[in-house]
Computed example of a mutant assay.
Amino acid sequence: MTVTRYTAADGLPAGYWNADPADPRASCAWLTANRWPEDGVGFLEVPGAGAACAVRVQDDHSGFSRMNCTDVSAGTGRGVDQPEADIKEARAEGLRQLNVCALGYGPSVFPAGGAEFDADALVTALEGYAGAQGRLLTFLHLDEDSPVLPRLRERGWSVGVTDRYFRIPDVGADEDAYLAGFSAHRRRRLRRELASLEEAGATAEIHQGDLTEEIQREVARLEACSDEKHGIPGDPARLLRVNERLRQAFGPRFCVTLVRDHRGTAVASSTVVLGAREVLPRMVGLGPGSAEIGAYFHVAYHLPMRLARGNGARGVLLSTGTPTAKLHRGAVARPLLSAVPPGAPAHRALLRRTDAAFAT
């Protein structure tokens, strides 16, 4: 069966994309603009299966652990205890990989509009494509309702939970409606949190469709500060390029939130993409002085919720990571599942332990 590779999503036929998707992660704009040169992500189309998919290839274990099937199967960064010898065996087993996965942990398989989707044909074609290159084929970060999962299980693949994706499902018609869903104790804490900026003489801004070059530079500076805190070399120029691509791709649906301290200095930011049903904060930037005024909670939660209410969206997509802060602000968790083939016993062993760890 024919498999065609594309460097970017916008090379695929237009029939794969909804012009106004409810979830911005499923849009061509997101999958094209939210990229950087080293991400290794491409797109494969299998017309005979009525589908395309986002894939990441790798030839070693450098790069991004959340798109590496060995690290994902092992629960790396998610607190899963694995024998080092088993991880070493899996690294040798999966040195060369073809991982079906999407940026932002959104959909990775895209049925073509007007075509009948054939999951069996898709998996068969991908197995042949990966096998011809000597690569281990895996599926990473699938939603539990992915139409591919039943077919993988039928074919003897191991499937397990490897992460959780958090979202606030209902931001309420206004702030009071949102707060009404919490206990009295939690409401009091959230009201104090919402008042933190005014008490510190700080201000909040939402920029929608009016992003000046100066605002973009302030955001890139703050995002570079956050990268540095996470051990990633801060590169404002790279971050500025990504955000400018997103602005051009999404137009007025690409937004920025900013918190300024009492001197007017930007100390926290978030970049946010608007979908028809949900909004997607892409990245939070935190600079010096943000912690003292609780700015993080505003740019990460409260301002995106305000954006959702003002644009007719109902929920906020919060991604993966540490659950406590998200759950305390009304988020719910959905499992993300990964799958490895029968011919990868070392990865199957890691995946079983990671799935068990998320079940406890």
Results as ranks from 00 to 15, higher is better:
6 Y>V: 06
8 A>D: 13
8 A>Y: 05
15 G>C: 06
16 Y>N: 06
17 W>T: 11
29 A>M: 07
34 N>P: 00
38 E>F: 05
40 G>R: 05
41 V>R: 07
43 F>K: 08
49 A>I: 01
60 D>C: 03
61 H>M: 04
67 M>E: 07
70 T>F: 03
78 R>S: 12
92 A>V: 12
94 G>R: 04
99 N>V: 14
103 L>T: 15
105 Y>K: 11
106 G>E: 11
114 G>P: 06
124 T>H: 05
125 A>V: 10
127 E>K: 12
130 A>E: 09
134 G>T: 09
137 L>V: 00
139 F>A: 08
150 P>Y: 11
156 G>R: 08
157 W>F: 09
157 W>E: 04
159 V>K: 01
160 G>E: 04
164 R>Q: 14
178 Y>N: 00
181 G>M: 00
184 A>W: 08
185 H>Q: 15
189 R>S: 14
209 G>L: 07
217 R>N: 02
219 V>Y: 09
220 A>H: 09
228 E>R: 05
236 P>M: 02
242 V>Y: 02
243 N>W: 04
248 Q>Y: 06
252 P>Y: 08
253 R>T: 12
254 F>C: 09
274 L>A: 10
277 R>L: 13
281 P>F: 08
289 G>D: 06
291 A>Q: 15
292 E>L: 10
293 I>H: 00
299 V>S: 02
312 G>I: 08
317 L>E: 14
325 A>C: 10
326 K>G: 05
337 L>D: 02
348 R>M: 04
